[in-house]
């Protein structure tokens, strides 16, 4: 379990993190979504023990991360700007990682060689950006981490490699119960892989939800009310309503069946439950138009 509690971090007076709070359950895959400059990378650098918070707590498995090598030995990270030594090859970096991570598995490293078509004798600097990212994945996954922190991990990877990489990470999650925290500015990217999503903006986590909970608890109904009913009955608990012709589109915070049952009282001519996309769910969760949510989640 990863717990971030009210973390504040100031850079020259500017609060990059302003009371950020989030919880990643053990074995969960947590997607941290937010626009550029929201503080995602800063938060992840705290989680990996690079930065030290000005206030608040950062616990992993109940232990503070700061200067905790025993804990950090069980964590691995892929930063958005992975550093490799100037003349180092993937094999060189592998030896370096192997020296630091006691759980490093050569067996895994050798198996993953096939997954990543990278010449490990080649200087990393000479690899393309996407290949460098793959090399980072290769080494990081070979560390056999219990906690995996990924900052914009699939940026620069082609769709095939994205799938490949996610497939490996998901395999780890299923097999070893790895807890994953992954950041992205693209919610769509995280939809398949995450079971929890947090939305971050201006140094705060605005909300966090489990996806299952989200999908079960919000419904979009298209309803045609009988003649004479032109307005949506005010007693209906509607989050958001819009109308095209006679068709009303209602967003309600409840299960589809319950919503249909409620609407059935007004003997509508037509009731149709339409699935909501994740973007839509977040837009309505965050309160719709009064917040520039579209910028955040799309």
């Amino acid at each position: 379990m990863i717990e971030v509690k009210n973390v504040v971090k100031r850079f020259d007076g500017f609060a990059a993190l302003d009371g950020a709070t989030l919880t990643v359950p053990k074995g969960g895959v947590y997607g941290l979504v937010g626009p550029n400059g929201a503080g995602k990378t800063t938060l992840l650098r705290h989680l990996t023990g690079i930065f030290r918070q000005d206030a608040g707590e950062i616990l992993i498995g109940g232990e503070p991360v700061w200067e905790n090598p025993a804990l950090k030995a069980r964590m691995a990270v892929i930063p958005d700007d992975w550093y490799y030594f100037l003349q180092a090859t993937t094999a060189d970096m592998m030896r370096f990682y192997r020296g630091f991570y006691p759980q490093f598995s050569m067996e895994r490293y050798n198996r993953l060689r096939e997954a990543f078509a990278i010449d490990e004798k080649k200087t990393i600097r000479r690899l393309s950006k996407g290949m460098q990212k793959q090399a980072a994945f290769w080494l990081t996954l070979s560390c056999m981490p219990d906690y995996l922190i990924l900052d914009e991990p699939v940026d620069g990877l082609d769709p095939v490699m994205r799938r490949q990489v996610w497939s490996l990470v998901m395999g780890d999650v299923a097999e070893r119960g790895t807890t994953v925290l992954v950041s992205s500015h693209n919610l769509r990217e995280l939809e398949d892989v995450c079971d929890h999503v947090g939305i971050m903006d201006r140094g705060k986590v605005l909300l966090e939800r489990s996806l299952a909970q989200l999908q079960d608890n919000m419904v979009k109904l298209q309803v045609v009310f009988p003649d004479g009913v032109t307005e949506v009955p005010p007693e209906l608990p509607v989050l958001h309503a819009s109308r095209i012709g006679r068709i009303h589109t209602l967003i309600m915070r409840m299960g589809a069946r319950e919503a249909e049952r409620l609407v059935a009282q007004y003997s509508p001519l037509l009731v149709d439950a339409v699935p909501l996309t994740l973007e839509e769910i977040f837009i309505y969760e965050l309160g719709g138009a009064d917040y520039a949510v579209k910028d955040i989640v799309l």
Binding site: I50, P69, W82, Y83, Y101, P102
Partner: peptide, 10 residues
Amino acid sequence: RATGLMHAFP
């Protein structure tokens, strides 16, 4: 970048 790498190590 290098600081990030070194300080993230255990």
